[in-house]
Design a protein around this nucleic acid. Structure first.
Lengths: 184, 184
DNA sequence: AAAATATCGAACATCGTGTTCGATATCATG
DNA sequence: CATGATATCGAACACGATGTTCGATATTTT
């Protein structure tokens, strides 16, 4: 591949990484990016069709290059029989995320869906108050709170995405079953 | 309040509800809304500063008018001592959501943050494969899968939002503790 | 050295936003 | 019902971002 292309591509990626420290992705303009990257306007559009495609490709590269080694057991470094434990693997993922926290935090801090979810969470905080009080556990309360609320929100999003096929009671029953044993 | 204001406001809300059946919120233009509502451009802006404020207010009204009765025990209809069970209350919430599924599905189906989360979920599906195989339970596999992945994604989002204060190991430990007991 | 190709950057058309203002229609009130 | 208040209308405008085009220039490949 032509060195100029690589140079431009890196300049764009670096610019985006830099800009994400200051602004949310959806607030960035193409002008911001090409100014920061110091490239011509038409050059940007010869590499990416839109700003969103840039994000798409950046995410793809992150997962291909940064996280790709977490799942596959590394030959020669693994003495447990070629199969890493789930705890260890998840730990690695979290470490990688913390190494790239500028980028990922900015990307994960999006808007749009958030407006509704924000109200929903606020509402659920009250609904879950008593559930949180009645258990003894070594897991801190704020963590349990986050967990219970977050997983319920995700359950509801999944329920909607799959076309509301389960009855509400069924969803609640399954959900409480999975939550129930977890408070030890 | 002046009848004209109420009329306009309802026209806007109805228009938004109608349009959300066809398009995602972030793809709607103010022009779309005022055309559907059949009002003048300046009229829209005399009611709402931006499109986002419209969504904000609509969400607020939904939670105030639709969900407000789920938490407070209704006097005269509750024979269990003035305190509804969590299952019953959550069921009510889900019912209300299903009654408003057009609006809520459209609002919850946002973009932005999703790009990253989509890759993240795909990645986690592989990582969680073995966890899902080794348990006997009456909760369907696709539900458990959604639950485990969704709650982990939410945990990570929370971890990032609170400034990565916990060590990765700690996060994983807490998370697995809460998940562990739930697979019965 | 020559041919191929990537970048530059200015100019342009297009679209959505949010504002302004005078004319018109509707309302609340006495 | 008459009148002052106020909400709506709708055209016009300035602004900013998007994505395209094209000839000139610079760099790379062979």
């Amino acid at each position: 591949m032509d060195r100029r292309q690589q140079k431009t591509r890196n300049a764009i990626y670096d610019a985006l990484t830099e800009l994400l420290k200051k602004k949310k992705f959806e607030d960035l303009t193409v002008q911001d990016i090409i100014d920061e990257a110091n490239i011509g306007r038409s050059t940007f559009y010869s590499h990416f069709e839109t700003k969103d495609q840039l994000l798409e490709e950046m995410c793809r590269e992150m997962f291909e290059h940064v996280f790709s080694h977490d799942l596959a057991p590394e030959a020669g470094h693994d003495f447990s029989g070629g199969h890493k434990g789930i705890a260890e693997r998840l730990t690695h993922v979290l470490y990688h995320i913390s190494e790239h926290k500028e980028n990922i935090s900015a990307i994960l801090g999006g808007e749009s869906e958030q407006t509704f979810v924000r109200f929903f969470r606020e509402y659920l905080e009250d609904a879950f108050d008593d559930v949180l009080g009645h258990v003894n556990t070594k897991v801190p309360k704020d963590f349990r709170k986050q967990f219970i609320i977050g997983s319920f929100v995700e359950t509801v999003k999944w329920w909607i995405a799959t076309g509301l096929k389960l009855a509400p009671e069924q969803v609640v029953e399954y959900y409480l079953t999975l939550i129930g044993g977890g408070s030890k």
